[in-house]
Design a protein around this nucleic acid. Structure first.
Lengths: 221, 221, 221, 221
DNA sequence: CATGAATGAGGTTTCATTCAT
DNA sequence: TATGAATGAAACCTCATTCAT
C-alpha cells in the first residue's frame, strides 16, 4: 500500500486527494508498469487485469476504455511535468530574493525536476513513449508550454541577460539548451544507464558537471 | 521512384546496393510512413498493404513476419546512425590533419549527422520510437556504441583534453553532453518544431549558437 | 405517481391490487419504456436502473432475472389483451339483450379494445415485439385464444349467421377478418401514424369507416 | 446450392446479379435463419459462423459489422416488398388494358405479393421484426411508401371511385383497408398458422373469401 | 511471384448477476 | 431493503498469417 503512495500523489489535483479504491490503484500500478515495459498498444487489458489481480471487467468499470486508462496516467503526468511553472508565484520568487544568480535558479530547477523524475519515473516513461501518438495531449502540452512555461522562462532569461549574467542569444535558444541539457541528463541517468554505479558521490559530481556545462555554455563572455 | 532513392541508400550494406523489387520499396515506404505516424504495434499489415498498393500476402512474401518488416527498417537505421564511428580511418583523420581544433571536429560531426537525420527522418523516428520495445536491437546498439562509438569518441576527447582545449572532466561526461546537445537540437528542429520558420539563415544561426554553447560549455577555463 | 397508475392496473389480477413498492413501479415503468424503444435484448439492466433511478442490484431484488422482468410485463399484457373474452358472462351478454345486431357487437368490441390499446400502448408494444421470441408465452396465448376467445367468438359468429346477418363463411375466416381489420386499424392509428392529425372528428370518422368496411365485407348479400 | 437461389434473387439489384461467394451465401442463409428465430440482438456472430460453417472472422471480412450484415438482409427486402409499385409502367398497366375492374387489380396484387411472401418468408420475418429498431430503414420505408406506393395506389383508387366501382371514402382509408386485409391474411397464413392444413383447395378458398371480403367492404353501395 | 479469401487466436468491451456492506 | 463494486462469460471485432489460385 505504501509503494502506491506515489500514484495517489501523481493523481492529486490542485493538492486535493482524488478518491481511489484499492483496486483502482492496483489497476493503475499494473498498467503503468506494463505500458512502460511494452508500450500501450502492445499491452492487453487481460494482462493488466492479471497483474493487478482483478477481473478484466473491473478495469472497464473504472475506465470506460483502454485509452481512458492511458489518459488517466498521461494527463496527470503532463500537469506534474510542468508543475513548477504553473505556480503563480514562481517568477516572483526567482526575481525577488531567492535566486541572486542564474546558477541558483538552474540548480533549484534541476534538483526539483530530478526529484520529480525519480519519483514518477514509470509514469513519465509511459508519457514520453505515448505522447507521439496522442495528438490531443500533444496539443495540450504545446498549449501549456507556450502559455505557462515558455512565457515565464523567457522573463527569467531576459532578467539574467539584463543583469549581464548570461549571453545575449534569443531566449528561446537559451531555453532550448537548458531543457535539452537537463532532459538529456535525466534520460542518461534513468533510461540509458539506470544500472550504472550511481552512488551519491558520482551522481552529485555529474549533476555539478552538468550545471557547470550549462553555466559556461550560457555565460556572458 | 526518385523519392524512394533514400530507402535504397538506407538499406545499402557496406556501400553495396541491395536488390529491392519495386513492390518491396513501396512496402518499406508505406511501412516507414505509417509506423512513424501511429507506431508499429498500432499499424496493421492490411493498412501497409493498402498504402503500398500491394496485396497483403505480398508483404509476407518479402518479410516472413510483421516484425521482420520492422527490423528491415530498424537495423539499417541503427547502423547508419553510428556510421561515422564505424569507419576505420575515422580517428586517424581526426588526429592527423583534418581537425586542428576540437571545434572543427564538432562542426563536422554535427553537419554530418544533421544531413543524415534530414535524409532519413521517417526511418529514424521509427527507430527511436520502437527501440524501447526491441531488447535485441537495444543490446546491439549498446554493443556497437560501447565498442565503436564510445571507444573512438573517448580517444578524441582525451586528445583534445591533452591539447588543453577542453576541460578535464571524465570523457564519458563530455561525450554525454555533446551527444545530448546535438540530439536535443535535432529533436527540437525536426520533431518538436518542424514547422517553425527554419530558413537557411535562422538555421545556420541556431546551429552556430549550439556549437558555441557546446564549445564554451566544455572549454578549458 | 399518477402517471404510473396504469401500470398498477395492468398488473391487477382478477381485479385485485398487486402490492408494488415505489421502486418496483419505477423499474417497470423504465423497463417498458426502454424495451418498447430498443427491444428487450438490446436493453441493458444498467440502463433500466439508471432510468428508474435505482441501483442495478435493486432490479434483481424484485425480479430474479432480466427475463422475469420481461415476463412481469408481458404476462399481464397477455391476459388483458383477451380480457373481454375471459369474462364468464360475455357470450350471454351478447346473445341475451345487449347486442341486437352484429354491428352493435363489433362497435362495442372495437371501442373496448381501442380504450385498452390507448391505455396500455407501451406494454402492448413490448408484448408484440417480444412474443415471437417467447415460445412459452406464445403457447399460452394460443391456448387461451383457442380455449376462450375462439370458442366464444365462434358462437357469436354462428349466432349472427343463423340470424342471417352475416355471410355463410367458416367462422374462423370471419373471426380472422374481424381481428385483422381491427388490429390493422390500431397499428395504423398508434404505431404507423401516431403523429397524424387524429382529432376527435377524424378518428370517429375513421372508426366508423372501419366498421362499415367490416360490416359490408361480412354482410349477407 | 439450389436452395440458396432465392437469396441471390433477393439481393439482385435492378435485375442484375450481385456477386456472392459460396461462403457469403452460407453466411446470409444462416443469418436470416437465426435472426428470424431469435431476433437480431439475441443472435451472436459466433452462432451464425457455426451454422454457416465458416470462421467467425469470415463474416467480418464480408460485412464490416454485425449491423451491416442485418442491413444486407433488410435493405433488399425493403425494396422487393414494394417492388410492384416501383415499376414505371405499373399504373399505366392498371388503367390501360389489364384491369377492367377493381377486383382484377386486387386479385393480381394479392397473388403477386403472396408469391413474394412465400418465396422470401424468412427475410421478411427479419425485416418486420427489426424495422422497429432501425430508424434509418423506417424512414426510408416511409419515404418510398409516400413517394411511390401511396401516390400510385391513390391514383388507382380514385380511378375506380370515378368509375363508380368503389365507395367514396378518402383514398388513404381505402388503401389502409386493402393493405391491412392483405397483410392480415399473410400473417395468419404464414406466421400465426403456418402448420394449419393449407392444401391448395383450402388456400384458394381462403384467398377467394379474402378478396370477396375486401370487394364487398369497399363496394359502392 | 502476386493475390486476397479465409482463418482462428486473441483483443477490447458489455452485461446479467452476485454479494458484502 | 437497497446499494453498487466486482465478476467472468460471452459478445463483437481485428489482425497476422496461410494457402489455393
Amino acid at each position: 500500500m505504501n509503494e502506491q503512495q506515489w500514484i495517489k500523489e501523481l493523481l492529486k489535483v490542485n493538492g486535493e486527494d482524488v478518491k481511489l479504491s484499492e483496486k483502482q490503484i492496483k489497476i493503475l500500478e499494473a498498467a503503468i508498469e506494463i505500458f512502460a515495459e511494452k508500450g500501450y498498444a502492445s499491452t492487453s487489458t487481460s494482462e493488466i487485469a492479471k497483474r493487478a489481480g482483478v477481473a478484466e471487467g473491473t478495469i472497464f468499470r473504472h475506465y470506460k476504455t483502454k485509452k481512458d486508462l492511458l489518459l488517466a496516467i498521461v494527463n496527470p503526468t503532463l500537469i506534474k511535468s510542468v508543475a513548477p511553472f504553473l505556480a503563480k508565484e514562481f517568477v516572483k520568487e526567482v526575481f525577488e530574493n531567492e535566486y541572486q544568480h542564474f546558477e541558483d535558479f538552474i540548480r533549484v530547477l534541476l534538483k526539483n525536476r530530478y526529484d520529480f523524475v525519480k519519483k514518477y519515473l514509470p509514469a513519465i516513461r509511459v508519457f514520453w513513449q505515448e505522447i507521439a501518438f496522442l495528438p490531443e495531449i500533444k496539443e495540450q502540452l504545446q498549449f501549456i508550454f507556450t502559455k505557462h512555461v515558455y512565457e515565464k522562462f523567457k522573463k527569467i532569461i531576459e532578467h539574467f541577460q539584463k543583469k549581464g549574467e548570461i549571453v545575449m542569444i534569443p531566449p528561446e535558444s537559451a531555453i532550448r539548451m537548458i531543457i535539452t541539457t537537463i532532459i538529456g541528463f535525466f534520460i542518461t541517468r534513468f533510461i540509458v544507464l539506470p544500472h550504472h554505479n550511481w552512488d551519491d558521490e558520482t551522481e552529485k559530481a555529474e549533476i555539478e558537471r552538468t550545471i557547470q556545462f550549462l553555466m559556461h555554455g550560457l555565460l556572458k563572455k
